[in-house]
């Protein structure tokens, strides 16, 4: 009994403190787009500024109740912080980079983001393909449907490039996460719909790339990841050659990796960004083959 009283007292006390924290408090309720409880945490964290502002976001209604010190900040400033964390509101649209960084479950429907008019003549295909992966649907309209069907292996390649980019940045955590996505993409490939050449190559290499993708996803140690990445690259290289991709890729070589034995990788750019040494040796290497 005592403990209950104590707990109640503490609870009351802390609420009192919490309420006392924000002076000149003004409360407004604004719609903030989001999906899940993870979103709730992020949104509320973005709004929380000690003694100045806080928010309570409701997963059901998608409404955020924002309490703020009207002498020190504005509701706009709070909404801006939420947008910078990746969440749209009627006032602000999140930067695409911030939205793309959200975990998969949080990638809400961006209703308030107006359709971007894309100048098709100027869009190059590699960029479109990349966007397809990153934007997970919201600008699907930018990609024609037949193009998707044309290349089932595209998600595999795209995710491979994501792993590579993470290794270029020596970012083990991202590399691991991207490798996990790559693994999903590999599993999603329906072998029976592949074209003949692709089919053969896939039969031969699927196991190999799967195992290395898995190995990369299971560790955050960049050195280990890079070893597997070297083998993974060989498999992907064969696949790329077999696939009639309309993507220009470059098969590039780092002569130093693995005690001078060297290692290769695929890149969408001709410029060298070496994934084996990261910033230490970023532009060391050369293109040994151009694949179209």
């Amino acid at each position: 009994m005592k403990s209950i009283i104590l707990m109640t007292a503490v609870a009351l006390f802390s609420t009192a403190i919490a309420n006392a924290q924000i002076k000149n408090a003004t409360t407004e309720t604004v719609k903030v787009y989001g999906n899940c409880s993870m979103c709730e945490t992020t949104i509320e964290k973005a709004a929380n500024n000690k003694n100045i502002s806080k928010a309570d976001w409701n997963e059901e209604t998608k409404m955020a109740t924002i309490t703020y010190d009207s002498k020190k900040t504005t509701v706009d400033a709070v909404l801006k912080n939420m947008a910078l964390a990746g969440y749209d509101s009627p006032k602000y649209l999140a930067p695409d980079e911030a939205y793309n960084k959200l975990p998969g479950c949080c990638k809400y429907e961006r209703e308030s983001k107006p359709v971007t008019k894309v100048d098709h003549s100027k869009m190059d295909h590699s960029k479109t393909a990349m966007k397809h992966d990153e934007h997970a649907g919201h600008d699907m309209q930018t990609q024609s449907k037949d193009q998707q069907e044309a290349n089932q292996l595209q998600p595999v390649f795209d995710n491979y490039f994501s792993v590579k980019d993470a290794l270029v940045k020596t970012d083990g955590a991202t590399a691991s996460a991207k490798a996990a996505t790559l693994l999903l993409a590999i599993k999603a490939v329906k072998m029976e719909t592949l074209k003949a050449d692709e089919h053969t190559a896939w039969m031969e290499w699927e196991k190999n790339i799967k195992s290395h993708a898995q190995a990369i996803s299971e560790t955050k140690d960049v050195a280990t990841q890079r070893e597997h990445f070297s083998s993974l690259s060989t498999g992907i290289y064969i696949l790329t050659k077999s696939a009639k991709s309309n993507l220009q890729v470059y098969w590039q070589n780092c002569p130093m990796f693995n005690d001078g034995k060297g290692a290769n990788w695929l890149s969408k750019e001709s410029a060298i960004k070496n994934p084996y040494y990261g910033s230490m040796m970023l532009t060391c290497g050369k293109t040994i083959e151009e694949i179209k």
Partner: peptide
């Protein structure tokens, strides 16, 4: 290494601070 070993390879000199290459 950039100055020595890597010379003649397919990259334009010392790009370790070239943000466009990175």
């Amino acid at each position: 290494k950039d100055a020595g070993v890597m010379q003649g390879m397919d990259h334009s000199g010392h790009n370790m601070y070239n943000s466009n290459a990175m």
